[in-house]
Structure formats: C-alpha cells, structure tokens
Design a protein around this nucleic acid. Structure first.
Length: 561
RNA sequence: UGGGCGGUCGACUAAUGGUAGGUCAAGUGCCUUUGGAGCACUUUGUCUAGGUUCGAAUCCUAGCCGCCCAGCCA
C-alpha cells in the first residue's frame, strides 16, 4: 500500500507532556495502558481513550498494554472481556501485553502488608454508614476512626483474618492512614480493601477481599512500568492518592495525566445507562446499530477509519465540551464515500410502466461501481418495461424547484434512458400507485444525441429482477441533545426517540445484492450508506442504514415552509 | 459554601509574548448521469474589568461562569 502524505498532527498537551518527559529524562521510555473494566461493551468514548493510549505510545516508539481493571467481581464478566478485545482489534490496535489487575492481587496484597508494617494502613471496624459519617463533608473535616491507631500486630492479624474469611462482608476494611482533615476527600483515609464474597471471573473464589480502584490502579501501572497513565478528568482528584501510594511503597513512579472525556450530542456514553437500555430491551442488545458502542457502530456500518479520523479531529484537551453528532457523521460519510460501492435500491417502491418499451425485453445497462474510485470497476443492471422508482421521486403536483418526475416532465433513469411521465393510476384512496411513461430509445445510457438536458437523474430497479429486502432505517436514539437531562421524576429513557427505528420490509434492490455478505457496506445511490446485517437470509438480505446522504432537496423543502 | 480542574467562532480545536488558523455546522456560487461527491468564496470568536508590555488569547490582579469530588464503583 502506498503511504499517503503524513497526516497533520495538531499539537496537544499530552503529546507535549510526553515529549517533555523524554527530553528532561524523567522517563526514558513510553509505556501506556488501556484499562477498561470488563463490565460492559466499549463505546465511542472508549475509542478516544484507545486512540490516545495506543496512538501516543506508538508515536513515541512506546508500547501499550491492554489491562482489564477487574477489581469489582460483582459487575464483571468474561463476555465483556471477549468483546473488549474484539473491539480494540477492530478499531485497529494491538496490545503489547494482555493483563488483568487480578493478575496482581498477590503482589498488591503483599504491598498492603508492607504499608501496615510501616504504620500507613489499618483495619477499620466501621461499617459503610459509619465510614461515611466519619468522612465529614466537602466543607467539614472528617473524624478519625476509633480503630485508626491499632498496633501493627493487631492490624496484621485482623487483615489476615479478613483475607481468611473470618468476618462478614462489609464488616471491616483496610484503610490507608493519611489525613482525615484533608480538603481532598480522597485523602481522608481511603479504603484499600473491602470484604466481598463474590466469585471473580478469573480468580474464582480465591479471594474474599478485593482491592479498590485507588489501591489497585496505580500499583498495576507501576508493575507494568507505565510512564503515562492517562485517564479522564474526574480522576484528577485522585492523583495525590495515586502518587502517595507509589511514594510510600517506593515503587516505579508511574504518572497519571488526565484528559477530557468524549461527549457527543444526542448520545449517551454511560455504561450503566447503556446496560439499562439493554436490560430493559429498549434496544436489541449491546450491538444494536443505534447504540454508541463499537459493536453497535460496526453493525451499523461505521468503519474503524472513520471513527479514528473523527477522534483525531475532535482532539484532546481539559475542557468539558460536547461534540456535535454531525461531525461524527461527516467522517463516516467521508470514508464511505471513498470506499463504498454504489448500487441502486428503491426503499418505497412506485411502479413505472414504460408504455413504448417492448414487452419482455431486458437490457443489461453498464453501471459504474464507484465514481470516486476508478479501480472499483463496473457492473450491469437489468432494465425492462416495468420498474420501481422511489415514491418521493414522483409528484403529481410538483412544488417549486422540484426537478424529479411529474406529469409531462422528462428525467433520466440513471444508467438507463430518459423517460417522460404520461399518465397515472390511482387506488381507491386517491394515491398514485402506477405511473405510465414513455422512453426515448436514443438516450440509452443516459445521454440525448440532440444534446437536450434533463434536470434530474433518479434511481430505479427492474421489477422482474428486483431482490426483496428488509431495510432498517435509523434515526438518533435520543431526541434530546443531552439525553441525560431529564425533568423531575423522570429518567433518561423518557428522552428516547420513539422513531429511532423504522423497518422497511419491502424494499427493492438491484439483483447484484441478492447474496451480499454480512458487514458489506454500500451506497444506495441518492439515499445513503447501508450495511448488510447479520440477520440476512439467503435471498432476503437485511440492510442497516449507516447514515443518509446529505440531502439538499430536504433543505430546500424545509426552507420553503 | 472546602478542594480540584476549566472558560478562543454555533460545535470541537490550534496559536507556547509577535498576522487569531483548521475541521464540522451554516450560507453563497460553480460544477454534476447521485439535488451525492468535489471546487471557490463568506459569516460568526479570545468570559468580564483592570494592570504589565512597543506588543497580551498567552503574563499579573480581581471578579464572573461551568464541570468534578462526600461508593466498601471505576
């Protein structure tokens, strides 16, 4: 593959930070990690983190580990572990090491012993409610636990017994002894271990105590010699604690750097809420094409390139912004425009009969596969007396600036002939169900020898050759720009767009699509990009609309009102 | 109200004391066998008020506004 011109790399603070660390000698290598918790499917927000973690390391000749942050057995599952690996690869990245925080449970346990021996950690008998009470508030300092000053021996004994299962869940914790009066709540003797009798997806029932995020994450980073541990902004308050643990232990000084999460209009990026949509069957699953998950977007027809380009264009900073959905769609169209073969499909069929076309005649018309890609070649499409066109492409009474078919008007059938509408047939309801036309035999292929022009070109499918298909038309999943914003007493599902899915069960496709393979992407000319769904059956394909083409007629029409 | 982090076109993001630029969106025109794509052009911005400086988005001071933190979630 020919390498194209190097993409412009706008500077950002992460890139500068890494470059600076290397220059000053703070680190001599670059090691990053992508640390998903296996409690849900990856979404476009994770794609940003992935592009940053993998992309930046790669730029500086460093490595990236995939590390599952599996310290909470109650929420985690191997189904997620598998999907995450698949999605990271699909996005186009590969990891150096594949690790689990649970791989380090023994080491982390030993380090806890070390802190206890150093008088830096203690077993607390306070229950959850009491811990909260003692923590104080944002404006008031906390109180020290009455168990805070136990002897090292007693702490060691109690901690061992916690590990051995001598105490009920939630009855005791191991806490770091830091400062109950700190203005940073994370430093008010944070909990390092909780007692939890839950089966872990990897360690099974070996452990009855589990380390918290704060106690496990930095230590896992340090074990892996991570130099730049990038995470989202809300962890900034945890940084002092991250550093405190590493300093007390005297281990490899990994460093945490925070950046802003991705947010997109009309899109929810909360694993908890996404899980709720799945559980409540508001969507067909994690890979429902309306979901912002990578698996959903894949099924919808989004390409990894488009997603990566989008992420790069959005950039990274420390502000909490919200990107317009249109930007994502732009990059999807941009990529698909270059690569998706064009094809003709009629979604809402209207029968056309060409009165002067010979009965029973079929012509194979040449059609270009992709005008953007000369290498894509061409195909033939059968033409005959009876065709389908789009209902939208005929108006008995055309509004101003409507250039498509209407009584007496001539249009071009793409790759076919010029036709002129002569008469219409209506049903009992007064709806047009058939349009009779004549064609000009001299315009085969779409050009008139006399040089006359038509204002419009419309797509069509030969009725006798058409492949019946189901087409799933998607709109935004939510009708509110901020789906999380809700009225009193409501929850976010109230913002679900009731029209996010329209199923068209009788679409007519050109015959080349009869056996299209699942995952294949096409442009249906003049309509949009569509992707073959795995639900397809032989002879009855199912397509998902990835994204519509930009429709300037829709704009004109809207403006006219 | 304690602490932390931020405020640049409608959106996202550059400019690192020296011409406020790019992408998306919006608009206008050209072109077109997709009302697609493409091309050209255009509109709109440094939170506020002071200060330092020849010169400030950038440095200083004071405000204002927004986000995050009181899980034994991550």
């Amino acid at each position: 593959m020919a390498s194209s011109a190097p993409e412009p790399r706008p500077s950002n603070f992460l890139r500068e930070k890494i470059a600076d660390d290397l220059k000053t000698g703070k680190y001599h290598h670059v090691q990053t990690r992508f640390p998903p918790e296996p409690n849900g499917y990856l979404h476009i927000g994770h794609a940003k983190a992935i592009c940053i973690d993998f992309g930046l390391a790669d730029e500086f000749g460093g490595k990236t580990n995939l590390r599952f942050d599996d310290t909470n057995p109650e929420k985690e599952d191997t189904e997620y572990v598998d999907s995450i690996q698949q999605d990271v690869r699909w996005l186009g990245f590969d990891w150096e090491g594949l690790y689990y925080a649970s791989d380090y449970f023994d080491q982390i346990y030993d380090w806890a012993i070390q802190l206890i021996k150093a008088g830096k950690a203690y077993v607390d008998d306070l229950n959850a409610d009491q811990v909260r009470e003692y923590r104080g508030t944002l404006t008031q300092p906390g109180k020290e636990s009455p168990y805070r000053n136990r002897s090292v021996e007693e702490n060691l004994d109690l901690f061992t017994r916690m590990k051995n299962g001598e105490f009920p869940d939630g009855s005791r914790t191991l806490r770091a002894k830091i400062d109950m009066a700190s203005p940073n709540l994370n430093m008010r003797d944070p909990i390092m271990y909780r007692i939890l009798r839950a089966e872990h997806h990897r360690t099974g029932n070996k452990w009855l105590i589990y380390p918290t995020y704060d106690w496990a994450h930095g230590q896992s980073d340090s074990i892996e010699k991570v130099t730049h541990s990038m995470c989202s902004l809300e962890f900034a308050d945890h940084q002092p604690l991250y550093n405190w643990f590493i300093e007390q232990l005297g281990i490899f000084p990994s460093q945490q750097i925070e950046f802003d999460r991705l947010a997109i209009t009309y899109t929810l990026l909360s694993k908890r809420k996404l899980l709720q949509l799945v559980n409540e069957k508001r969507v067909s699953g994690w890979d429902d094409p309306r979901m912002p998950t990578l698996s959903g977007m894949r099924r919808r027809g989004y390409t990894p390139e488009a997603i990566r380009n989008f992420i790069a264009a959005v950039g990274v900073s420390r502000t909490n912004g919200i990107v317009e959905l249109e930007m994502l769609e732009h990059f999807v169209r941009e990529d698909l425009n270059k690569h998706a073969p064009r094809v003709m499909a009629v979604l809402k069929p209207l029968k056309i009969v060409i009165d002067n076309y010979p009965e029973g005649q079929v012509e194979q018309m040449d059609a270009v596969n992709n005008p953007e890609d000369p290498n894509a070649g061409s195909r033939t499409v059968p033409f005959s007396k009876t065709l389908y066109i789009e209902q939208d492409d005929f108006r008995e009474v055309p509004p101003p600036k409507y250039f498509r078919l209407s009584p007496g008007k001539e249009v071009r059938l793409r790759y076919g002939y010029f036709i002129t509408a002569k008469s219409i047939v209506k049903n009992a309801l007064g709806e047009v169900i058939e349009v009779h036309c004549t064609y000009d035999p001299s315009t085969r292929g779409g050009n008139a020898p006399d040089g006359r022009k038509v204002k419009s070109t419309i797509h069509w499918v030969s009725a006798a050759h058409a492949v019946d298909a189901e087409v799933r038309m998607y709109e935004k999943l939510f009708s509110k720009e901020d789906p999380g914003a809700v009225e009193e007493g409501q929850n976010f599902t109230a913002n679900l767009n009731p029209n996010s899915l329209e199923i068209i069960s009788d679409a007519k496709l050109e015959p080349s699509l009869a056996n299209a393979a699942a995952g294949t992407r096409y442009q249906f000319e003049r309509l949009g990009y569509f992707c073959v769904d795995p639900d397809s059956k032989a002879g009855k394909p199912v397509f998902n609309r990835t994204v519509a083409l930009k429709d300037s007629w829709a704009k004109i029409e809207k403006k006219g009102r």
